[in-house]
Amino acid sequence: MRRTHLLLLLVALSIAPGLVAADIVGSPDLDIALEDDSAVPGEDTELELTVTNSGDLRDGSNANPQLNDRVTTARGLTVTVDDGEAPVTFDSDTRVVGKFPEGERTLAYAMTVEEDADPGTYTIPVEAEYRYTNIIKEGSDAGEEITLSRDRDFEVTLEIEDDAQLEVVDVTPQARVGSTGTVAVTVENSGTEAASEAALRLESRNAELSFGGTSTASHSLGEWEPGERRTVEYRVSADRTAGPQPYAFDATAEYEDSDGRARTSQTRTIAVTPREEQTFAVESVDSTVAVDGTGTIEVTMRNEGPIAVRDASVELASTTPALTFSGSQSASRFAGAWEPGETRTVEYDVTATEDADTH
């Protein structure tokens, strides 16, 4: 019995040094999946990838557990998508992740689906490139490491579905330079599916044309069937610094698909050309008003076009309290219909105080 115990002790002593000097061996274990695997023709959306590192620790360290994380961490990780045979394009196809320990990360890629994309299932190739420390030595060789580079290929599946699509059919601007008017936009659902709770959003790219001082405006389209056309009107203000030239607006349809998911159509650029500014010129001003007295002021004006106006009024405003119109600082006279090139003379009763000669 004593001999048996001694033999077991010797065996145990011969194994112990090997355990202390064991190598730490492992690697990252990556997986890539698609967050939302559906899109529609003509859609501007995002391809969201979920990248998971489960880690593969084959031999770990009890004495230095922090070294276990080093062999399962991917370093300098980049994830690149490719359209492959899919009818999509990516604004930027690579995301730099850098250091990626065990865990999960979501990466988003701006994606546009072609307008004439055929519904169906498409494969999106994905490439992950990274470095990692495969082996860390302990014991007498402590500090020695083996670092490897890895290039892994993945595939995710994208489903392109039938859905509504935005097509701008007509744009009719009534707004004039220096005033506010309407812009009528006619759109058609050129897709194969109905859109629910649809809205058409316009965004001006230039501050000279706005929606009451803001750059965006939205109008409801409601339920929007395939092939159906809708016309919506927007109130657009054109600054006096604007000109009768095309200004770019972005048109986008926002809606819910048949499954109740929020969708955004591909953005369409439309041109809005404000009409030429309507102008009037002062031809002459005649006054019979004396200081500290009353009299009349006659103003003759010409409609310089470009259009005839109706129900026109001419307002005269005083810039000083020494001149008033029956106690008011302004007065208006009706001029009625007014053709281009035609003149109108309007008369105002004016009172001047004794201070009028100093103004």
Rank of each mutant, 00 (worst) to 15 (best):
M1E: 14
T4V: 15
G18A: 09
L19R: 04
D23Q: 12
I24F: 04
V25T: 11
G26W: 01
D29E: 10
L30C: 06
L30R: 00
L34C: 07
V40I: 15
E43D: 08
T45V: 07
T45Q: 05
L49D: 06
T50A: 13
V51H: 07
T52A: 09
N53T: 06
D56T: 07
G60W: 02
N62H: 12
A63P: 02
N64R: 11
L67A: 03
R70L: 14
R75G: 13
G76P: 00
L77C: 04
V88F: 12
V96D: 10
V97S: 07
G98D: 05
K99W: 06
E102M: 15
G103W: 01
T106C: 12
T106D: 06
Y109T: 03
A110F: 10
A110W: 07
A110Q: 10
V113E: 03
P119I: 11
Y122I: 01
A128L: 11
E129D: 12
Y130K: 09
R131D: 09
R131F: 14
N134D: 15
I135W: 02
K137P: 00
A142K: 11
I146V: 12
R150Y: 12
R150G: 09
D153Q: 14
F154H: 03
F154G: 08
E155C: 04
I160A: 00
A164F: 04
V169N: 00
V171L: 07
Q174H: 09
S179D: 13
V183T: 07
A184G: 03
V185R: 03
V187M: 08
S190V: 13
A194P: 08
A195E: 01
E197A: 14
A199K: 12
L200E: 04
S204Q: 01
E208T: 02
E208A: 14
L209Y: 00
F211M: 01
T216H: 04
H219S: 13
S220W: 11
S220D: 12
G222H: 05
E225T: 15
R230H: 08
A238W: 03
A238T: 02
D239K: 08
R240W: 10
R240G: 11
T241D: 14
Q245G: 15
Y247I: 00
E256A: 14
S258E: 13
S258N: 11
G260H: 10
R263W: 07
T264L: 05
Q266V: 08
T267N: 05
R268K: 13
I270F: 00
V272N: 02
F280W: 15
V282D: 10
D286S: 08
T288R: 09
A290Q: 15
V291F: 07
D292Y: 09
T294P: 15
T294D: 11
G295C: 10
E298R: 09
V299Q: 06
A312W: 09
E315N: 14
L316C: 09
T324R: 09
T324D: 06
F325A: 01
F325Y: 01
G327R: 03
Q329W: 11
S330D: 11
A331E: 05
A331W: 04
S332D: 11
R333I: 06
R333T: 05
F334P: 14
A335F: 02
G336W: 06
G336N: 04
E339T: 13
E342P: 02
E342Y: 00
E342M: 06
V346K: 01
V346T: 14
E347S: 13
Y348V: 08
T351A: 09
T351E: 04
T351H: 02
A352V: 01
E354A: 15
E354I: 13
D355P: 10
